[in-house]
Every structure is written in structure tokens, then in C-alpha cells.
Simulated scan of single mutants.
Amino acid sequence: MPLEHPGSRAADDPIKLLAIRETPLCVDEVFRAVGDAAAGGIALFVGTVRNHDGGSDVDALGYSCHPSAEAAMRRIAERITADHPVRALAAIHRVGDLIVGDLAVVVAVSCAHRGEAFTACRQLIDDLKHEVPIWKHQRFSDGTQEWVGSC
């Protein structure tokens, strides 16, 4: 029976980057943060501002967050790294005014194997969307506006 290589297990401190920022996000920063010589797979998700929602044209939007948002991100990251053999994890979310095409969120996870990375990254973005107190204020082309619970 072959011995398990230490790199196939979770890293001791896999949470490399967690932040909420008012400045533009950088995919390369997140990608670099999850680099690990023992990782055979990196899954990265980039959420952008799209030009439509619910059949209406979106001109722009703004994100705002509760002061506890980064702490909520940390709890989620800790849960993901406890549930999956994560080598490294990073997540950044934008707040403030954004326009169509801007990056709203970038998350990435590296693991020894691609399937593990895909699964952990999917859970990370889904949990961030549902649990972190960040709200989206959409402005539509017809002059209407809408607040969306969590993003």
C-alpha cells in the first residue's frame, strides 16, 4: 500500500487572502495567492457585473456590506478548509459603485486534485453569496432601482 504524500492533505494554514475592497479587484492576485507546489488543481471563479437581471437592462450597481462581512468570509473559509483538502484559498469582494463588466468577486481554491478544487471553489462562492452580509443596489436603464439581499 503506497504511503500518502503530505501534499495530498490539506495545508496547515490554507487561508491566504480574504478581503472586501473599494478598489478594483485583480484576478492575478487571487491566482498567485493560491499557488502551491502540492496543488494539481486550481479552481478560480470570477463574478462580473452583467448588463441584465430579471429581464431588465442594468446600467450600474453598487455593493455595500455590514461591518461583520469579513468575519463572515473567514468563517466560511474556515469551514471550506475543514471540509475539503484545501492547499490554499483566497476570496476578495468589491464594494462601492461598479459598472457593467467590472469584477465583483474573485475566489480561488487549490487542492492536490482538480475535482477537489472544483468542489471546494463551488462551495466557497455559493456560501459567500448566501451568507456574507453584502447587498447589491442595481440601477436599471428604465430608471428603476432594486436592492438584492445578499450577493
Rank of each mutant, 00 (worst) to 15 (best):
P6G: 07
G7F: 14
G7L: 15
S8H: 12
S8M: 13
A10Q: 11
A10W: 02
D13P: 01
K16T: 05
A19K: 10
A19E: 09
E22T: 14
E22F: 11
T23D: 13
T23L: 09
P24F: 06
C26D: 14
C26T: 09
C26R: 10
C26P: 00
C26K: 01
V27L: 05
G35L: 11
G35V: 05
D36I: 02
A37N: 13
G40R: 03
I42L: 04
A43V: 03
L44P: 01
L44E: 00
L44F: 00
F45K: 02
V46A: 09
G47M: 07
V49Q: 05
G55D: 10
G55P: 11
S56F: 15
A60D: 05
L61R: 04
G62P: 01
G62Q: 11
S64F: 02
H66M: 12
S68K: 08
A69D: 08
E70W: 03
R74L: 12
R75E: 08
I76M: 09
I76D: 09
D83V: 14
D83C: 15
D83W: 15
P85S: 01
R87F: 01
A88G: 04
A88S: 06
L89H: 05
A91P: 05
G96N: 03
L98W: 00
L98Y: 00
I99M: 13
V100H: 09
G101A: 08
L103V: 08
V107F: 08
A108Q: 01
A108C: 06
C111A: 14
C111D: 01
R114W: 06
R114F: 04
G115K: 09
E116C: 00
A120I: 07
C121I: 04
Q123T: 11
L124C: 10
D127C: 07
H137P: 08
Q138T: 02
S141N: 05
S141R: 11
D142T: 07
D142Y: 02
C151Q: 06
